[in-house]
Amino acid sequence: MDGMVVTGRWTEIGQVADIPRQGARVVASRIGDIAVFRALDDTVFATLDRCPHKGGPLSQGIVHGHAVTCPLHNWVIDLRSGEAAAPDTGCVRRIPVRVEDGRVLLSLPV
């Protein structure tokens, strides 16, 4: 089951090059902080910056493949689905993201 997806208006938040490979940046929004991740293969993902376990800042976690490990309790979150890896259960809200000419756009609620 995929994680909940928040959709809205497309908003440019910067360049792909502004996000380190295997790293993240945080964008403030009216629904809370959003973690924008860049995988080693340059795929970009966005989720709310709160682990479903105890609310840890996912943006400070370790990005590996298309997943991030929460810095608080080592939960692994699949960035494609938002789901926690077994045996843990939970889901983080994903934010639709697209890349156009090196620019990162998020679909943020209005």
Rank of each mutant, 00 (worst) to 15 (best):
L48S: 02
S59F: 02
H73V: 08
V92A: 10
D101F: 07
I62E: 12
Q15E: 13
D41F: 07
Q15F: 08
R30I: 06
V6F: 14
R80D: 11
G56I: 04
S107L: 04
G8N: 07
Q22E: 14
G32E: 03
P57A: 13
G8T: 08
R93K: 11
G102S: 09
P96I: 08
E12W: 00
L72K: 03
K54M: 13
N74W: 04
R9D: 12
G14L: 12
V92K: 03
V27C: 04
E12S: 13
C91W: 08
A85E: 11
A28F: 00
P71F: 06
M1L: 09
D42K: 10
V27K: 12
V99Q: 14
G23P: 08
A86N: 05
V92C: 05
W10F: 13
P96L: 05
L40H: 09
V5C: 04
R50F: 08
V16Q: 08
L106Y: 10
D88S: 06
T7E: 15
R98P: 05
L108K: 11
R21E: 15
L108F: 08
P71N: 05
L106V: 02
T89D: 11
P52H: 04
H64P: 00
R93Q: 12
G23T: 08
Q22D: 15
A86V: 07
H53R: 09
V92N: 05
G55T: 01
I34D: 06
G32H: 04
G65N: 03
R25P: 01
I95P: 09
I31E: 12
G56L: 03
P96R: 12
L108N: 09
Q15G: 02
Q15A: 13
C51L: 01
D42W: 07
I13L: 10
R21I: 14
E12Q: 15
S29I: 01
R25Y: 03
R103E: 07
G90I: 06
T47G: 02
L79Q: 04
V68W: 00
G55A: 03
L48M: 12
S59R: 00
D78K: 05
G65S: 01
R93T: 14
V99P: 15
D49V: 03
T43Q: 15
V99A: 15
T69F: 02
H64G: 08
V27H: 13
A39V: 03
D101P: 02
R103C: 11
